[in-house]
Simulated scan of single mutants.
Amino acid sequence: MANKAYASNPAWYNGGDDKNGESKKANSTFFDTDVDFRIAEYMHFCSRMLVKEPKKGRNKAPAMVVFCAFEQLQMVIDYGKRYGFQHYIPLTFIKKSSAQALKANMKIVGGCEYGLVLYRDKLPKFNNDGQMIMNWFHWDIDNSYPKIHPTQKPVPVLKRLIEIFSDPGDTVIDPVAGSGSTLRAAAELNRSAYGFEIKKDMFRLANEKMLNHAEMSLLAL
């Protein structure tokens, strides 16, 4: 994404209109970490944080969920295998609208988010309540939660994933916590939650706006 983060978004221009000239967001990234994200270190950290698989029993193994661009799926799969995540399940999240408004009269625009469920050897814990769960989900948004991060994931989506792959009392860890929405979702589902964030301003906003009524930990590195 790099400096093209807003390339198909009206925010590229002042007032969302190209007649007004480019805004400060033109040719910019969401964050400097978009350019210098070290996926090998990320995978190593996650592999250390994820609990070991139980030797016996079904539906007890842990899982890791990664959101990424469609073009990044294979890279995440390959790096995951280097650090012990030998298997994966692809996920697609369907939106009601597209952020690529500037491209709408030029081509088919993107209306999906993508992700992967990574796991080691055993199938991860799976709570389906007797219902078939497909590998696609609606991108449900709840505007009652504060909007802090430009790529913030909706709390309802995160809650659904947490419900499926963990039990009440389990621990949820977000290595790139951002707005803290994962931690908020976990807390509302009676899971323990820990998040890590290197951006001090994001750490402050998440604590002040997203996590101020929840008991959890967000660590600034």
Rank of each mutant, 00 (worst) to 15 (best):
N3P: 08
A5S: 15
S8W: 11
Y13P: 03
N14W: 08
G15K: 04
G16W: 12
D18V: 00
K19P: 01
N20H: 14
E22D: 04
S23C: 05
K24P: 00
K25F: 15
A26R: 03
N27Q: 10
S28Y: 01
S28L: 06
T29D: 11
F31Y: 07
F31M: 05
V35F: 09
D36Y: 11
R38Q: 11
R38A: 01
R38S: 06
I39S: 06
E41R: 14
E41H: 14
Y42K: 13
Y42F: 15
H44R: 12
H44M: 09
F45K: 10
C46S: 12
S47Q: 12
L50N: 03
V51E: 12
K52G: 11
P54D: 07
K56N: 06
R58C: 11
R58N: 15
K60Y: 00
P62C: 09
M64Y: 01
V65N: 07
V66K: 15
C68E: 14
A69F: 14
A69E: 15
F70Y: 14
E71C: 14
L73W: 04
Q74C: 05
V76Q: 14
I77P: 09
I77N: 09
G80E: 05
G84Y: 12
I89V: 07
I89G: 00
P90T: 00
L91K: 02
F93S: 01
I94V: 08
I94D: 01
K96S: 10
S97R: 10
S97G: 04
S98K: 04
A101M: 08
L102R: 09
K103F: 10
N105S: 12
I108K: 00
G111L: 06
C112K: 07
G115Y: 08
V117S: 11
R120H: 11
K122C: 10
N127I: 13
D129F: 14
G130C: 13
Q131Y: 15
M132K: 15
M132G: 13
W136H: 11
F137M: 15
H138M: 09
W139K: 02
D140H: 03
D142I: 00
N143T: 01
S144T: 15
S144L: 10
P146S: 12
K147Q: 11
I148L: 05
T151M: 13
P154Q: 03
V155N: 09
V155Y: 09
V155G: 06
P156I: 06
L158G: 00
L158V: 04
R160V: 06
R160H: 13
L161A: 06
E163V: 08
I164F: 00
P168T: 00
P175Q: 05
S181Q: 03
S181F: 07
L183E: 12
R184K: 13
A187Q: 04
N190P: 01
S192I: 01
A193T: 02
G195S: 12
G195H: 02
F196P: 02
E197G: 04
I198F: 09
K200Y: 09
D201A: 07
K209S: 04
A214T: 09
A214M: 04
A214L: 10
E215Y: 03
S217L: 03
A220T: 01
L221S: 06
